Amino acid sequence: MTSDTPARRRARVFSRRRSAPSRARRRLGAAVRMIAALALAGGVYTAFTPGAFAEDNVQLSAAAQEGKALFDNSCISCHGRDGQGVEERGPSLIGVGSASVEFQVSTGRMPMTRQEAQAEQKTPQFDETQTKQLAQYIQELGGGPELPEGELVEDLKTNPDALARGGELFRINCTSCHGFGGGGGALSSGKFAPSLHDATQEQIYAAMLTGPQNMPVFGDNQLTPDEKREIITYITVQLQDDRDPGGLFNLGRYGPSTEGMAIFLVGIVLLVFTSLWIAGKS
């Protein structure tokens, strides 16, 4: 058996001292490679992710420049420079698209006078041209959903099949909040689904595209553009033009059920008073 001489012990210590720097260099090299890989991945993501940030030097069209002037005068205090948002005052508008701006501004929901549970519809502060200019500025700033050009449903109004399909889609997707007659309804925490009686075709389409307030977004994978148009056809023809669906007295425009309940209650009261009158006479 070989004895453990002092020379061999010194050799082992020297070998350990040589191996320690080698392990440290390997660890340092692995850390450098990891940092380089993360930096490369971040650079690729930043370069190829569209609409993530607004460009400071973006070239705006003439309409968008007019919209920027309106934005800087009326919206920048809440939504910040270049629509980046202000914490606890207003969200970022990067990526919301022109459809969202057209809905919010044309219905008077924006600009808001104060923070509430829900922005309520009021008289718009901008005319149609100014609204489109604001929308174009936000669209060019960060992209997002846009309204289709041209008339939305003019060719569907005389199509009974489109009207029937629109009614079915409306009952499946919209009545739980807006009611069967489109009169709207209360939600939780002081929020509500608004009435559809005065909504324009563009506002309805924009609301389905962008999902304002508590409304879900109905993207083209949930409702195709043709299905959206059929729903708008049903709303404009059946609920807006025909003001009394299923009844005569326009009781909330919920259909014949409310009128039947009203007739029942009034009839019962009349019968009770008639019975008391007859009993008193006899």
Rank of each mutant, 00 (worst) to 15 (best):
M1I: 14
F14M: 11
R16S: 14
R17V: 15
R27S: 08
G29Y: 05
G29D: 07
M34N: 11
M34K: 09
A41R: 09
V44G: 07
T46H: 10
T46N: 05
T49R: 06
P50N: 05
V58I: 07
L60Y: 12
S61D: 00
A63Q: 11
A63H: 05
A64M: 01
G67A: 01
D72Y: 02
D72H: 01
C75T: 04
H79S: 03
D82I: 08
E87L: 11
L93D: 00
G97I: 00
R109K: 04
M110R: 14
Q115M: 11
E120R: 06
F126Y: 01
L134M: 04
I138T: 00
G144F: 00
L147R: 00
G150D: 04
V153I: 12
V153L: 13
P160Q: 13
F170M: 02
F180E: 08
G184D: 05
S189E: 10
G190H: 13
K191D: 13
P194I: 06
S195L: 08
D198T: 14
T200I: 06
E202A: 15
P212W: 03
P212C: 09
N221G: 06
N221M: 14
L223T: 05
T224Y: 03
K228Y: 08
E230C: 09
Y234G: 05
I235S: 06
D244A: 12
P245Q: 12
G246F: 08
F249C: 12
S257I: 15
T258G: 09
A262V: 12
A262C: 09
V266N: 07
V269C: 12
T274N: 11
A279H: 07
A279C: 08
K281Q: 05
S282Q: 06
S282P: 03
S282D: 04
S282A: 09
